[in-house]
Simulated scan of single mutants.
Amino acid sequence: MLEYIWLDDETPILQQVPVEYSSAAIIFSPFIQMPEGWEKAKRKNDYEHIYPNDDDIRGKGKAVSWKKVMSSCGFKTHAELALALMTSIGALRDEYAREDLADLLHVNIKGDLFYPSEDHISPFHIPSLVKVLGANGSNRFYYAEPIVENSGFLDITEANLRTVLDDAAAELILMDDKMDFVFMSVYDSFINVFLAKDESINEWVRLMDWEARICDESTHISWYT
């Protein structure tokens, strides 16, 4: 089976993946809206930073699109929002950091609206992952975590995907047992990479209602710079 791929920012994504994967997409993880007053009720003091865990997100959270956050911040492109997010977590070198965009994001991310899942695959994507991984008739999916050297096969169910995602380290790869579709988390980011062997990736993104950037031959993992 295919193992996790550490994508560098010097070479286009499609040149770094096995040749049988002819298409790729960058999937944006949704922002997280918790019920009004949720954070205040969780905090033990005014200085405590609270972020919802996976159970909180699945139980009470609602997905908020990048498009909606872009509108509230006055950003014109997904790249500007990505730069704001990456700058705010200190993931960019000084020459790429955009403190002005990060400041605008901070002003607009308040109350019970939270950043997307960082480093991990969003819990909001579990139902669509079940559909994609089983679309070719596969009954099992493969998962691999290189940091902890953990891997294996499980039946394609929401419960099994929840278990894997809840326990996963920052790097994780998922694929159906026929290896037609691949979904990877990306460290220090708020996106995932979706690979497909055929050219139907646009259709999959549309059917799953994912916010995404379809990769061409020149798209890098640092697509926002």
Rank of each mutant, 00 (worst) to 15 (best):
76 K>D: 08
61 G>I: 01
48 E>R: 04
42 K>Y: 04
53 N>R: 07
33 Q>A: 10
35 P>C: 08
68 K>N: 13
49 H>E: 14
77 T>K: 00
68 K>F: 15
62 K>Y: 02
39 E>G: 03
57 I>W: 03
50 I>V: 10
53 N>V: 04
59 G>L: 02
48 E>M: 10
51 Y>R: 13
70 M>E: 02
62 K>E: 13
43 R>C: 15
42 K>C: 03
57 I>S: 04
60 K>N: 13
45 N>A: 12
66 W>F: 02
51 Y>I: 10
38 W>K: 13
40 K>N: 06
74 G>H: 08
52 P>F: 05
44 K>V: 12
58 R>K: 08
68 K>R: 11
56 D>N: 09
63 A>H: 03
47 Y>Q: 14
47 Y>H: 10
46 D>C: 12
53 N>P: 02
64 V>K: 11
59 G>I: 00
38 W>E: 08
56 D>W: 06
52 P>M: 12
41 A>G: 14
63 A>F: 09
35 P>K: 06
47 Y>D: 14
37 G>W: 08
55 D>V: 08
60 K>R: 15
33 Q>P: 10
50 I>W: 11
71 S>R: 12
54 D>N: 15
64 V>A: 13
32 I>D: 01
39 E>N: 12
70 M>P: 02
68 K>C: 12
35 P>L: 07
39 E>M: 09
65 S>E: 04
51 Y>N: 05
62 K>S: 05
67 K>A: 09
47 Y>V: 04
58 R>T: 00
45 N>E: 09
32 I>F: 05
64 V>L: 10
55 D>E: 13
76 K>I: 05
68 K>E: 15
79 A>P: 02
44 K>R: 14
67 K>Y: 03
44 K>W: 12
42 K>N: 06
60 K>L: 14
61 G>Y: 03
65 S>Q: 06
37 G>Q: 13
73 C>M: 06
61 G>V: 01
37 G>P: 11
52 P>W: 09
48 E>F: 08
50 I>D: 06
41 A>R: 15
43 R>Q: 07
46 D>N: 14
47 Y>E: 07
66 W>M: 04
32 I>W: 06
79 A>Y: 05
70 M>W: 01
55 D>T: 02
58 R>A: 00
63 A>E: 01
66 W>Q: 01
34 M>V: 02
75 F>R: 03
57 I>T: 11
38 W>P: 04
54 D>S: 14
54 D>W: 12
78 H>W: 03
34 M>W: 00
72 S>W: 03
74 G>M: 04
78 H>K: 14
63 A>V: 07
40 K>D: 12
43 R>T: 11
64 V>W: 04
38 W>L: 06
56 D>C: 05
35 P>I: 04
53 N>T: 14
42 K>F: 05
40 K>T: 11
51 Y>F: 15
33 Q>C: 07
74 G>A: 13
67 K>N: 13
48 E>D: 12
73 C>Q: 07
58 R>Q: 01
59 G>W: 01
40 K>A: 09
70 M>K: 04
49 H>S: 09
46 D>W: 10
52 P>K: 03
65 S>G: 08
72 S>R: 15
51 Y>C: 07
32 I>E: 00
36 E>H: 14
36 E>M: 07
61 G>T: 00
55 D>C: 08
75 F>S: 01
44 K>F: 15
43 R>Y: 12
39 E>V: 06
59 G>V: 01
60 K>S: 05
32 I>V: 11
66 W>P: 11
51 Y>P: 06
45 N>V: 11
70 M>D: 00
71 S>N: 14
50 I>S: 06
38 W>Q: 01
